[in-house]
Amino acid sequence: MQVEILNISGKKTAKKVDLVDSIFAAEPNDHCIYLDVKQFLANQRQGTHKSKERAEISRTTKKLKRQKGTGGARAGSMKSPLFIGGGRAFGPRPHEYGFKLNKKVKALARVSALTYKAKDNAITVLEDFNFEAPKTKSFIDLMKNLNLSDKKTLLVLGDTNKNVYLSSRNIQGAKVVKASDLNTYDILNAENLILAESSVKVIETILNRE
């Protein structure tokens, strides 16, 4: 599939790029997408939740009332979960939420996500560029030139570009990542995918290898 390359003014250049069918026109696998997104979101969880159980709180151990004759149930400790201020029964404990996922499953998930974006004509290829200095207005102007200022976008760069990254950081709905850090969640979360010209080769190299 051939796509025309645009410049930062939003105008077509004389160049075109081939988006290989094995990545941008593959057979999508929805279950792999589900697993990869589930793992990504699970890894975002800190898992530091904790509540004190009856063995961890400090309260009197004096017997509250006599064993028999009160008409109520036996009670031997204020630490019991039955009383206000008592320990919690089966409360949450710190633990990891992440889980293992095979590399090939994750690669197929990314390929599937890129295929869906290509089918929806939501991929724009931009020639490599740089900003002279980090400036939010420069990035806003770029999105306006591409008619994407009102959309959630993901800009994929071939390599680290500090000026471009810092220029986008303060804009809601805009995200900039390196091609090597591209993940399924970010692809699907964006309405439009902007690929820098150099990032296409990096994506192909990574996904064809995996």
Rank of each mutant, 00 (worst) to 15 (best):
K152C: 09
I171H: 03
S198G: 09
T205M: 04
I206F: 04
K151L: 10
F40P: 00
F40K: 04
D21N: 11
E210G: 00
D186N: 12
L41S: 05
S112D: 06
F83V: 04
P81S: 11
V3R: 11
G47V: 01
V202F: 12
S198K: 12
I84W: 01
R93V: 14
A107E: 07
I57D: 05
Q172K: 12
G91L: 03
K119I: 00
S9P: 00
G72A: 13
S51E: 10
P81N: 06
A122G: 02
Y116H: 15
V200S: 03
F129E: 05
N147Y: 09
Q39W: 01
N7K: 03
M78Y: 12
K106Q: 14
S51P: 00
E210A: 13
S22I: 07
T184L: 05
V164P: 03
P94G: 05
V17Q: 12
T70G: 15
D120E: 15
A89I: 10
F83Y: 15
G86N: 09
N145V: 13
V20N: 14
V125I: 12
K119C: 00
K104F: 14
E127K: 15
D159G: 04
A113K: 04
N189A: 15
I187K: 07
A190Y: 02
G69T: 09
L41D: 01
D186I: 06
P134R: 10
A174F: 06
K117R: 13
G173A: 10
S22H: 01
N163Q: 13
L142G: 03
E132C: 00
